[in-house]
């Protein structure tokens, strides 16, 4: 299990290659990459604030729960903070398992929990000013699935 919280960019493809490399005990690798989306065409920058210390422990707790609930060979979570350009990768999760159902479900679970339980806050900077992104009720509701 690897959890990284970093300001630096990452290469999702290279991370995924390294994640599964050399393993012969897994039959499935699932990954998700979150990207800065410019919904209205005026986004200059996405600024991500986090709670150093709690961020790492909250993500580790979520990843540990995934490992306990599904038969996973490994889990990777990378999440960035600081200023990000439109189109830049924000975060990724990868799960490895013997079978695909566990890998898919665990990745979905990780994403739902990272959205609402990892202490990150997004701020969108546009030509008109800066706005904090509000949490969606749907994101909180998504946790009830698990």
């Amino acid at each position: 299990m690897t959890v990284r919280v970093q300001a630096e960019p990452f290469d999702a493809g290279a991370e995924l290659d390294a994640f599964a490399q050399g393993r012969t005990d897994i039959g499935a690798v699932v990954s998700f990459t979150g990207v800065v989306r410019d919904t209205k065409g005026d986004l200059q920058e996405m600024l991500i604030e986090h709670y150093p210390g709690m961020t790492e422990s909250a993500i580790s707790k979520i990843a540990t729960e995934a490992v306990q609930r599904w038969d996973l060979a490994d889990v990777l979570v990378i999440h960035r903070y600081g200023p990000l350009a439109p189109g830049a990768p924000i975060m990724m999760v990868a799960t490895a398992s013997a079978h695909r159902a566990a890998a898919f479900e665990a990745a979905d679970f990780l994403m739902d929990y990272l959205k609402s339980r990892a202490p990150f806050w997004k701020k969108e900077i546009t030509g008109d000013g800066a706005t904090w992104v509000a949490a969606k009720d749907a994101d909180e509701d998504a946790l009830k699935r698990w």
Partner: peptide, 10 residues
């Protein structure tokens, strides 16, 4: 003690 709005990770 930390106070913050609902989190928006991912």
């Amino acid at each position: 003690v930390a106070f913050f709005p609902p989190m928006t990770g991912g």
